[in-house]
Amino acid sequence: MFDYDAELVRHHERLFETLDIRPGDHVLDIGCGTGRTTRDAARAASRGTALGIDVSGPMLAQARRQTETEGLRNVDFVHADAQGHAFPPEHFNLGISRFGTMFFSDPAAAFTNIGRALRPGARFVQLVWQAGERQEWHAAIRAALSGGHAPTRSPGAAEAAFTLADREVVVGLLAEAGFTAVDVVDVREPVYYGPDADHASAAVLQLWAAKELVTDLDAASTERALDRLRATLDAHDTGDGIWFDSRAWLVIARRR
């Protein structure tokens, strides 16, 4: 399983600097994955609670195991789609998401449903990717694996990560869903793929976006693509691991 917590370590720090979680908060974590954000929220909300929701069963299984290992008792997880899940109404006073809101089939419906779960005046803080062409990790890895040629199959899920890249669209969606005081902050932090090219290559090839680019290649073409990937990763070795530039939006809104 790809380690998104390692990849997004700088973004995680930026998110939690903004959240200012208080001990009595009740936190809803959208698209929680393996639960790092949920667990850290629960630690900060020591007299409150944190609920993580995600559509991935394997990720949630890992989240629950790690929560048990860490001995946290104010954390829960639900395996469901936040777009339609029946949350307790007006229960949470903080909603958070670290790159977990870009994949809804109907984002307007999803944000409306999330809003119903938040108390009036509650904050909703999320990180989403800016456009794909602004992501060095996306452009460089895609170019390496495709050899500079357009992929033979449609981008599919690989492009879903950028569905909230237009800041005006995000502001409009949140306003229609009952949020106000929407602030969109430009965040430029690098993403991490491993201590060296060997580890980074193995990590990249776990990503569905990378798998899509090599699925239809023959053996010789695949070997050339992997050689190009290795060269690209070597070129991004800072001496302190493999890092790529990235651009995100930190979106802060308040439930009306």
Rank of each mutant, 00 (worst) to 15 (best):
F124K: 09
A110H: 00
T152P: 14
A160K: 14
R123A: 12
G95C: 00
F111P: 03
R116A: 08
F77P: 00
F87G: 01
A80C: 04
P155Y: 08
R116T: 11
A144S: 07
N93K: 06
E133C: 13
A80D: 08
D106N: 07
G95W: 01
E90H: 12
G95E: 02
V78I: 11
F111Q: 01
G132Y: 15
L145H: 11
P151S: 07
G147P: 10
Q130D: 12
H91E: 10
A80Y: 07
E133Q: 15
V75P: 00
A82I: 02
P107C: 01
G147R: 12
A122C: 06
A131Y: 10
G132R: 15
R116P: 08
P89T: 05
D76M: 11
Q83W: 08
A108E: 14
F124P: 06
A86D: 10
N113T: 06
W129D: 03
A140S: 14
M102C: 02
A86M: 10
H79R: 08
N93W: 07
D106F: 04
I141A: 02
A140H: 13
E159T: 13
T112A: 10
G121L: 06
A150P: 15
S105L: 12
H85I: 06
P107K: 01
N74D: 01
P88S: 05
S146E: 09
L127W: 11
F124G: 09
I114K: 04
L127H: 13
N93Y: 06
S97N: 04
T101Q: 03
S154D: 15
P88T: 09
L145E: 08
E133I: 13
P89Q: 06
A144N: 07
A139F: 12
F99S: 09
V78P: 04
R134S: 12
G147D: 11
A131L: 08
P120Q: 10
A82H: 04
T101Y: 04
T101E: 05
R142K: 14
F77S: 01
F104L: 02
M102T: 01
I141R: 07
R153E: 15
N93L: 08
P155D: 06
G132D: 15
E90L: 10
R134Y: 13
D106H: 05
E136F: 08
A158M: 07
A117P: 05
